[in-house]
Design a binder for these strands. Sequence first.
DNA 1: ATGAGGGCATAAGCTGGAGTTATGAGTGAG
DNA 2: CTCACTCATAACTCCAGCTTATGCCCTCAT
Lengths: 310, 310
Amino acid sequence: MSEVEGGAAAGLSHRVPDLGALQLLLAVARLGSLGRAARELGISQPAASSRIRAMERQLGVGLVDRSPRGSRLTDAGVLVTDWARRVVEAAEAFDAGAEALRDRRDSRLRVAASMTVAEYLLPGWLIALRRERPDTAVSLLAGNSAAVVERLLAGEADLGFVEGRTAPRGLRGAIVARDRLVVVVGPDHPWASRRAPLTPAELAATALIQREEGSGTREVLDAALAGHGGLAAPLLELTSTTALKAAVASGAGPAVLSELAVAEELAAHRLVQIPVEGVELRRALRAVWRSDARPTGPGRDLLSLTRRAQ
Amino acid sequence: MSEVEGGAAAGLSHRVPDLGALQLLLAVARLGSLGRAARELGISQPAASSRIRAMERQLGVGLVDRSPRGSRLTDAGVLVTDWARRVVEAAEAFDAGAEALRDRRDSRLRVAASMTVAEYLLPGWLIALRRERPDTAVSLLAGNSAAVVERLLAGEADLGFVEGRTAPRGLRGAIVARDRLVVVVGPDHPWASRRAPLTPAELAATALIQREEGSGTREVLDAALAGHGGLAAPLLELTSTTALKAAVASGAGPAVLSELAVAEELAAHRLVQIPVEGVELRRALRAVWRSDARPTGPGRDLLSLTRRAQ
DNA sequence: ATGAGGGCATAAGCTGGAGTTATGAGTGAG
DNA sequence: CTCACTCATAACTCCAGCTTATGCCCTCAT
């Protein structure tokens, strides 16, 4: 999917300043002075000065107007800083996720989550949690729904997140988000230019590109199309969501995916969503916990965060 | 806005692998071998091996299972790779934008764009354009609508993008996207918990946090509320959209902003959108060009891209 | 069985980028 | 006039990441 992994992007790290430099630029923008920004990041003022200058040389554009009373962004600098903010925000999400992945032991809150939740939603929640309760150590274990349930029942996790149509037995839960499955094709696929919505029968009769095992998606799809002749045999089975999206984007065929997984591709029109009439392909994303272990402390905090974001 | 620029994130670059390492990880995931990934990125196999190992040490998690027949991601590795992809994609957008900012001269396509378009939409378009026409050099000049028009009329730009309710005179244009203005407040603001939509009169009577000069937003807002008593005096005037969002998020008051500018904050519930009844705060984003210089070649390519993404 | 080849790891050495401290020069406020 | 702040330059240190050279392991084909 996308140029990101193609050969053309090979030199990215030579053309894009590293995270430290981007963060420094954000600090300069906010604080209005190289020296103050340096102090905030714990480096010396000359280091900051030279780094910003190196970044300007690398990009070939002036970013800050220096004056004896401080530094302000140039017009180009404003734009660059806004783009930089995206990169740093993505890095923050990476960091929050990675930290949770690391602290396997001695964490105050042990979370087990399905892949969809862990990939798309949890980093944002963890960032918010970190902001509210900076000293909460969270550990994350990602797996399929069965594994999540198992961890909870074994007392090896305090809070779980699963997708599925019903709450697993033996556990209490609350819906924290909803997830819609959408039919997508590549922009050159014939369906991309059709005007009428797909009928459930059509969808059922079409061979789809699918994930190998029924990653929760299949279950919902099966149920929704049960009355319309059942699901056709897969056109292709792939192991990763990424590979699947790439195959769909290149026109190999249609697929049904969580809208969380394809939001960016839809926005950039690398994929096209095809409406389907008459079936609701929704599923709930639930927080779950053992009936005898209602979340307290940090678990409660995280839970209330996720419900607020519903 | 957000921890991104706060002191707590100071050590980000020590905890997050650099872009090169993330890109290498993506390549390993895709190609299934450290050596092949190394070759693709133009580095030696030991370099790749040591870099991945360093990354695993840094994150405290195993990412790839090495075998004599290749390397596959571990479960944690899949998750980390997905998070990494976000960072690299943001870096790609940064790169595409920065490249356009740099090539002031001798570019085949000179684009002038308003801030909103340059910030949120153009990088994606440039990435798509690069994929379709790899050798198109684009230069970008960002400014307000008046500046964009001026450049076009002076023949210093081939294609422009402006927001506004009407197409500027002397230019031809086509609507390429629409942009909705939304009322936002911080999550703790009283409005965040109200159930009824805002009335236009209420909105008109409320002092808002605003950008300093009427950045196109004000024009639309004025027009929409003209029949309801006109806009109240500003509560606060700030220079940058970023500062504005930060002020709103911390509860200083309500503001009216493009939904493009607040999409992420809404998703993470750092801001809350308040519906307004009865007024449509929409505006068009237009591609514009001189009547006697209809875009050809690369300009035409970019234009068709943007219209496809409408 | 026995190379050949692909895959990964280790070791030794080089290099450059980013950091440091020390210092100077410009500007505005008290 | 002097202090307090800004930024820039210079000289030096250090380490992360690169390279080449090599070795081991496994599999597959001859």
